[in-house]
């Protein structure tokens, strides 16, 4: 049996995704080189990174077409868990720096 009728995705699409990813990459490089305030730089780069991740996960890994359950499993299981891990250990790192650099 043929799946041709079902598949309406044109082969131009991967290049659009890749093009968008590349564009974001160059934008990020430019931002990293522009001497922005540190907080702004971190925020901007993280946002752009998440956009890239969304592009790859959504288009390339086809999460946009998958059941929302898989999407939420992925977001909760990987992204939220990682953020929780980092957020809860970061205060200790900052405390170490304070203790080391305090005169």
């Amino acid at each position: 049996m043929s799946h041709a009728s079902r598949d309406t995705v044109s082969s131009a699409k991967p290049w659009i995704t890749t093009g968008a990813l590349l564009l974001l990459t160059f934008l990020m490089l430019a931002l990293a080189n522009a001497s922005l305030p540190r907080a702004l730089e971190i925020m901007a780069l993280t946002m752009l990174m998440l956009m890239q991740v969304a592009l790859i996960a959504g288009n390339s890994m086809r999460l946009r077409h998958a059941h929302p359950g898989i999407l939420w499993t992925f977001v909760g299981g990987l992204l939220v868990t990682s953020v929780l891990l980092y957020v809860l250990i970061a205060p200790d790192a900052m405390r170490i720096r304070e203790m080391v650099t305090r005169p």
Binding site: F74, L78, L85, Y86, I89, A93, R97, V100
Partner: peptide
């Protein structure tokens, strides 16, 4: 993929921790 991704999360969180703790 989630589990394998969390391996990198472990490394990257550790990296972020190490980086925050030095000047």
């Amino acid at each position: 993929i989630i589990s394998d991704g969390l391996l990198f999360a472990g490394f990257l969180a550790a990296y972020g921790y190490a980086r925050l703790s030095v000047s």
